[in-house]
Design a protein around this nucleic acid. Structure first.
Lengths: 117, 117
DNA sequence: TCGCGGCTTTGATGTGTGTCAATATAGAGC
DNA sequence: GCTCTATATTGACACACATCAAAGCCGCGA
């Protein structure tokens, strides 16, 4: 679990791309998150979770939206969770995934432009 | 060249992740851009170009900042260019790379949150 | 036109990754 | 305990990718 926290800290502490160059460590941390977003299935999964009204999505809801096998969906969810974009909670037989809004927010701030042209 | 324009259009036309789920085509287009950002070397290259005052960077300036071979740098530049994040222009013996601010802006808007909690 | 410096392309190679089938785990209910 | 359902893990495999050396290309100056 500690690894996820560290990773989020790296993203938080990295300056906007347009402010100053990233050093190697910052780049490595941020790249992990972008790499997680660099797969169509994971992007769709994330958008399903992010746009869900209640904020929570059961794995079975996701599996039904794809033609991918259930283990593959589970793998993608794990990747998104490992980089700190999602959290999961088990309740009864089901596992519910939830967005970590700060993670997306930090990432957005990182690549956003300082308004000045 | 047409391919880059199409890709940028996909990113532009995709709703914010928190608004509604991406369809397969949107996800594929957006994922290409994130995948390009999902490499530490490319992230550093992009931040070097983005943070450069004049907005322009010569390839030789980038090569000096890494321990990677020059062909490898050239490869990463090509990837960033193919997804529409950079443009290049040859002047005399040198090739200058430049950020495409709209691309980063659209991407930022895509993952940004609608302020409401 | 010849060579040279800056950059790109090609070819080869080892490593990473998305996918699935099979198996394992965990909880609920009987 | 046993079984059924929901999810995760493992193992295997094909494919993609980051990297480098070598070769090619393109302006420029001599």
């Amino acid at each position: 679990m500690g690894a996820r926290v560290e990773l989020l800290e790296i993203v938080e502490c990295s300056p906007p791309l347009m402010r100053e160059p990233l050093d190697a460590e910052q780049a490595a941390g941020v790249a992990r998150v972008f790499k997680a977003l660099g797969d169509p299935a994971r992007l769709r999964i994330l958008s399903i979770v992010a746009s869900r009204a209640g904020g929570e999505v059961c794995v079975c809801d996701i599996t039904g939206a794809f033609e991918l096998s259930q283990p593959t969906i589970s793998h993608h969810l794990k990747v998104l969770k490992e980089v700190g974009l999602l959290t999961s909670e088990r309740r009864a037989s089901w596992v519910y995934y939830r967005l970590v809004p700060e993670a997306l927010g930090e990432l957005s701030a990182l690549i956003d432009m300082p308004a000045a042209v």
